[in-house]
Amino acid sequence: GIQEIVAMSPELDTYSITKRVKEVLTDNNLGQRLFGESILGLTQGSVSDLLSRPKPWHKLSLKGREPFVRMQLWLNDPHNVEKLRDMKK
């Protein structure tokens, strides 16, 4: 599951990941809330907090790293936007 992926993950640049996620969401007119609930399993508040103030990787616990790994996996998925759009319906 995701825990193994997080444990094996190389250090991620949390700042550039969140910046990229925000760009993709904005460009495709997708909400942070939808993204947070569907992709990260987080509430709106947690998501906007994460996206606006990402902590550096080395300061995060494994649990804290999980959303960033999920974001990275989502960014790597060529169908990420379509999938999210489908969830919106």
Rank of each mutant, 00 (worst) to 15 (best):
K59E: 12
V47M: 09
S9M: 06
G1Y: 15
T26P: 00
K88I: 07
P56R: 05
S46R: 09
S46P: 10
S9A: 10
L25I: 04
R65E: 00
P78A: 07
S46V: 15
T14F: 03
W57T: 03
G41Q: 06
K22N: 14
T18G: 08
K63Q: 13
S61C: 08
V24Y: 04
Y15F: 15
R53Y: 07
T18H: 01
D27T: 15
F68S: 00
K59C: 08
P78F: 05
L50G: 01
I2A: 05
K19R: 12
L75M: 05
S48Q: 08
Q3S: 15
L75E: 02
K83T: 07
H58C: 15
W57G: 00
V47H: 03
E66H: 00
V21S: 00
R53E: 12
M71K: 03
V69Q: 08
Q32C: 11
Q72V: 04
V47A: 09
T14P: 04
S16H: 09
R33Q: 13
M8P: 06
V6P: 06
H58T: 06
R53N: 12
K89I: 10
G41E: 07
K63T: 09
N80A: 14
D49V: 09
H79V: 06
S52K: 08
Q32A: 11
F68I: 06
S46G: 11
T43F: 04
E66L: 06
L25V: 00
P54W: 03
K83R: 10
E37D: 06
T43I: 03
W74T: 01
D49L: 10
L34K: 11
G45M: 10
V24C: 08
P10G: 13
M87Q: 15
M71W: 03
E11G: 10
E37M: 05
W74A: 01
K89F: 10
E23R: 13
R65S: 03
G31N: 13
K55T: 12
Q72G: 04
G41F: 07
M87K: 14
S48D: 15
L25R: 01
G31Q: 11
I17T: 05
Q44Y: 12
N76E: 12
Y15I: 14
L73K: 15
L30Y: 03
K83G: 06
L50S: 04
H58E: 08
L12Y: 04
S48L: 12
D13Q: 00
D86T: 09
R65I: 01
V69K: 05
L34F: 11
S61N: 12
D49I: 06
D49N: 15
E66P: 04
T18C: 09
K55L: 11
S16D: 15
L12P: 04
Q32H: 11
T43L: 03
Y15W: 08
K88R: 08
V6F: 07
P78T: 10
Q72L: 08
S52L: 11
S48V: 10
L42S: 06
L75Y: 02
I5E: 14
M71Q: 01
M71V: 01
L62W: 08
E66C: 03
T14K: 02
N28G: 05
F68V: 02
L50Y: 02
